[in-house]
């Protein structure tokens, strides 16, 4: 069988380019996620932060509930897209022991953050984040970053960037149901 050498060269070049870009892609995709991956299955680091209404909230205050811990900022447009979903899901699952907790990783003033949250109609507590808390969660190179914590206080899933509402809801159900699954084992 006669093979055109040009075709062979072109195929070799394409495969090489795909390999080079693939390796680059893998290299670049690892550092951004920080150490957050290590948290999966581990107890969610506790923190104590000031809420928008001046109280101090601890993550451990919600022990026994499934928690969606959402790191966001007012300058983050994708974060804004999720907020109405969180509001709806808080309404839908709140009575079943589910809690959304927002952590504003913002340089805006607390009053601006409160104003923003009010305009968005947020129905869940928001605390003012600190970099140290972000570091506890493996560093937050970008927002939104969301951690799903089960009723035992363990991180069962962490998600970076905007995801679909159905994926969020599925993770909430996983966080709410995981205690039941553990109990059955």
């Amino acid at each position: 069988m006669k093979r055109d050498p040009i075709i062979l060269i072109v195929v070799a070049v394409v495969i090489s380019l795909m390999l080079v870009f693939g390796i680059q892609k893998t290299r670049h995709s690892q550092p951004l996620q920080g150490g957050a991956g290590k948290l999966q299955g581990q107890p969610a680091p506790d923190f104590s932060l000031a809420s928008l209404d001046g109280k101090t909230l601890k993550l451990s205050d919600f022990h026994g509930k499934a928690v969606l811990l959402n790191f966001w900022a007012t300058w983050c447009e994708p974060c804004k897209i999720e907020m109405p979903w969180f509001i709806d899901l808080q309404k839908k699952y709140g009575a079943q022991g589910f809690q959304v907790l927002g952590v504003a990783m913002d340089d805006a003033s607390p009053s601006d953050i409160a104003d923003f949250a009010k305009k968005m109609g947020v129905n869940y507590p928001i605390v003012i984040g600190k970099e140290a808390v972000g570091d506890q969660y493996g560093g937050l190179p970008y927002l939104p970053s969301t951690f799903y914590i089960d009723r035992d206080g363990k991180v069962i899933e962490r998600v970076f960037g905007l995801r679909s509402r159905s994926e969020i809801e599925s993770n909430i159900q996983k966080a709410m149901g995981s205690q039941g699954q553990v109990a059955q084992k």
Binding site: V11, L17, F21, K25, S29, P141
Partner: peptide, 26 residues
Amino acid sequence: MRLGLCALILAGFAAAQDFPPGSRAP
């Protein structure tokens, strides 16, 4: 055949450019 190869090259480049969101620093 050659058109097919061009399509393959373009697809290769498209795949290379398709970084998942949030996977690399700006």
